[in-house]
Computed example of a mutant assay.
Amino acid sequence: GAIWSHEHGPRGGDEINIIEAGTNYGWPDITYGINYSGTPITDDTHREGMAQPLHYWDPSIAPSGMAFYTGEDFPDWQGDLFVGALKMQKLVRLELDDRSIVEEEDLIASLNKRIRAVAMGNDGHLWLLTDSADGEVLRLVPPSP
């Protein structure tokens, strides 16, 4: 029932947040990123009354699509959060313990393709869309025994 969000920040500062009414997430008063020109946005990453992100990336991965895994083919991934990365050209698996991220794993980086969209399919598989002129729709399946 929670609203999970990812935020594509400037050079660093990409975030995962759980959106809650009345919460101040701090932008641009606090951030882990800098302007694209290299100048600081602020020197502050924390301030009283402002929420910290659940997770952040620095350097930026340029997050794109995001989905929770609810399939059965990868039992160890049940309930994990998957985020596509445009800049870093990978799929990121975030292992969760309730509302905490306890592990981060990079997947399919060897494809060297920007991951634009991530979705949990009705068929129980995780589906990805690459971002290029010859883009592809990919379905994650377990390796054959």
Rank of each mutant, 00 (worst) to 15 (best):
W4M: 05
W4L: 01
G9Y: 09
G13I: 06
D14A: 04
I16S: 02
N17A: 04
N17G: 09
I18Q: 07
E20I: 03
G22L: 10
T23G: 00
N24P: 03
N24H: 14
Y25V: 04
P28W: 10
T31H: 05
G33P: 08
I34T: 14
N35H: 15
Y36A: 12
T39K: 15
I41W: 04
I41D: 01
I41L: 02
T42I: 04
D43R: 14
D44Y: 14
T45R: 12
T45W: 08
T45K: 13
H46Y: 14
R47D: 03
G49N: 07
G49F: 12
M50L: 11
A51P: 01
P53Y: 06
L54P: 00
H55R: 11
H55D: 01
Y56R: 06
Y56C: 00
P59V: 03
P59C: 08
S60H: 05
S60I: 00
I61A: 04
A62T: 10
P63H: 05
G65E: 13
M66T: 10
A67N: 13
E72T: 14
P75T: 06
Q78F: 10
G79V: 02
D80V: 00
L81E: 05
V83H: 04
G84Q: 06
A85I: 09
L86S: 07
M88A: 14
Q89P: 02
Q89C: 01
K90M: 15
L91T: 07
V92D: 06
V92P: 01
R93A: 03
R93S: 09
E95I: 00
E95H: 13
V102S: 07
V102D: 06
E104I: 04
D106W: 11
L107D: 11
I108A: 02
A109E: 15
A109I: 12
S110T: 12
N112F: 12
R114P: 10
I115Q: 11
V118W: 01
M120N: 02
N122S: 15
D131P: 11
S132R: 10
S132L: 07
A133I: 05
A133Q: 15
D134N: 13
V137M: 12
V137C: 02
L138M: 09
L138T: 06
V141R: 15
P142F: 12
P143F: 13
S144K: 15
S144P: 10
P145C: 03
P145D: 14
